[in-house]
Design a protein around this nucleic acid. Structure first.
Lengths: 355, 355
DNA sequence: CAAACTCCCGGAAACGTTTACAGCTACCGG
DNA sequence: CCGGTAGCTGTAAACGTTTCCGGGAGTTTG
């Protein structure tokens, strides 16, 4: 027998040993039957019966230790309240699930320590791979990423030579598309509400905005630029500050949350959208379509980026020797009521409506 | 030595054996030092050095197999796009993190098979405990819950005798608060946009609405009731259908997503909110405050419920012999612009505004 | 009828860690 | 000077699974 303990007492979870003993076969046979590989009809019957009787359910931890796989994929995003990540997550989840794996989401809250802690955790092999979408990337962040023992795919801009699988989009170009559209519809005093400049997306959008204005020969008015963080409340407050010192005829926002906040302030301050002020958000999330009027928004292909990231990750898990790869998704502009040249005013021009 | 393989080749992750061999001590000593328990100064130095040199990081799977703990908590919700779960998740995450554990989120997509599959997965001991917020609860769902080998806390209504830890709120009472408020502000033709009646929250809200109307002696007009699912688009469409056949002066919605959809349809159909139609949502999420006008909403204390659930779970993990417990959170009503008796019209009465 | 082949089975090793236990050294007190 | 004790160390077992390998039985083939 070799095994001292052979308890069948009810308060202890049954193991394959329990099942094997009850069926009168070896653990090897029991394991084979339970995995559906081999076994004579008689053995199969006995093992199945025994397993059902004791309510056996395999211990995934032990299995993982043996197989060196957990069939789990982690997604780390900084703010799970941002609908853009929800859409990305859904796309990733679809790919991951179709490979028989399970997706786990972890919110880092943007705290960088939290993210490196997470990387260390995953170095512990709790997951088979990870997709991470950092908004700030420091040097040791990067080294932590690239010598992760577990495959990692980064969604977002990364240094060109970083040897890490990477799915990106061109948010500078995205901002330019918004500006082009606004200029084409006759707007000239175009404001910009951005997130922090020390974040990767914040910096890219800022550069994109300045370049786009310059391309149209429009002088930059710093009074028309405001910075908050990437949240709704910040968008509302930033727009409040902006309106206090300037009178834009259009507003570009660094994401849809900010744009939603901007819309709120504009309406509360009696501006008609789009008559007085046109508004364009970014990420083209569900939220943009929830607003009234619906928001024009630059799509950065979040679902597509998620899908591609998941595919890259699965490929790398299948073959870790692959060279680092990079995928790009093109931005596109969804024009909706908030920036259309409306024929009919959508709201009255009434000052200081209470919200 | 006993151990055949003792590779130090670079392409294999170092184990405690690698470290021990390099430091010239036994694996027991190495393990002890790495866990900071015992060891002579000399041994400690050698092991620390060796570990640093080979970049040792412990394998959490193996550790979990031994310790029977993973330090992971799972949260399963059906729709991660619903902001109510985001708020709940943030509250849970705070509690879980403060206990040194990590929270993993899993979206079940409401598919019941997915949820039981998840329960089976967690029966596999991948997590130390789980918080689940199911919207449909079947019989075998319940049995799966109650003989889960891992502690489970359910957020939501459950049969009274179900021996499962449970945090609930009184959504019937919540709906009643909304109706009371609307009646008090002079509304009489109160419509209701609900989710599916075969869900637990849908059924409770329906019962609450009917009871509340009856309490006020208002006859129920079935034309004023519409059902979709708990999503934004469904709320929009359901309100469309409702407006096609009735003219409510107020609308109660089963959650804020539905309310956001209802607002969209109301505005697009030229109804002024709150002048013509007052609107009250439910869950009091961020989304309610993002709308313009801001939505009144019945808070079901989602953050509080999350916090309580996490606490119950941690307690049960600490002492699995605890009897099943139940916590309740009282609903409350946040009155905002969408149902205030506004003095100033917030929108013009213009028909068929395009959105 | 012997040899080869196919299946099935059980023993045992392996995954990487923690830890109970026993042995050793060195020191202290009597 | 000797017994006891404290502190450290190493051996080995254990967590629960999968899987390699060798042996045995039964079947087919030459």
């Amino acid at each position: 027998m070799g095994r001292k303990r052979l308890q069948e007492s009810a308060d202890v979870r049954p193991t394959v040993h329990t099942v094997a003993a009850r069926a009168g076969v070896s653990i090897a046979s029991a394991s084979r039957v339970l995995n559906g590989v081999g076994g004579s009809p008689e053995t199969v019957r006995k093992v199945r019966e025994a397993a059902a009787e004791v309510g056996y359910v395999p211990n995934a931890i032990a299995r993982s230790l043996q197989s060196q796989r957990t069939e789990l994929i982690a997604l780390a995003v900084e703010d799970i309240g941002n609908p853009v990540y929800v859409e990305m997550m859904r796309a990733i989840e679809a790919v991951v699930a179709s490979s028989g794996r399970q997706l786990l989401v972890h919110a880092t809250g943007g705290r960088i320590d939290n993210e490196t802690a997470l990387l260390r955790r995953l170095a512990n092999r709790y997951v088979d791979g990870m997709i991470v979408s950092p908004i700030r990337v420091t040097a040791d962040h990067l080294t932590a990423l690239q010598d992760s023992p577990v495959p990692v795919v980064v969604v977002g801009q990364l240094a060109a030579d970083a040897p890490v699988d990477n799915v990106r989009t061109d948010s500078r170009r995205g901002i330019a598309m918004a500006v082009d559209h606004l200029v084409a519809t006759g707007r000239r005093r175009i404001g910009f509400v951005n997130g922090p400049l020390d974040t990767v997306p914040g910096a890219a959008r800022d550069a994109g905005f300045r370049a786009a204005l310059a391309a149209h020969g429009i002088a930059l008015d710093e009074n028309l630029i405001e910075i908050g963080d990437f949240q709704y409340a910040a968008g509302r407050d930033a727009t409040e500050r902006l309106l206090a010192r300037a009178e834009p005829d259009a507003l570009v926002c660094a994401n849809d949350l900010i744009a939603a906040g901007a819309l709120h302030t504009l309406l509360a301050r009696g501006r008609r959208v789009p008559i007085d002020v046109a508004l364009v958000g970014m990420d083209d999330t569900e939220l943009a379509r929830m607003m009234f009027p619906q928001l024009s928004s630059v799509s950065l292909g979040s679902a597509e980026r998620g899908r591609r990231a998941a595919e890259l990750l699965l490929q790398r898990i299948a073959d870790p020797s692959l060279p680092p790869r990079r995928a790009s998704v093109e931005p596109s502009l969804a024009v909706r009521a908030s920036s259309a040249q409306a024929q009919v005013p959508a709201q009255p021009s009434r000052e200081e409506v209470t919200s």
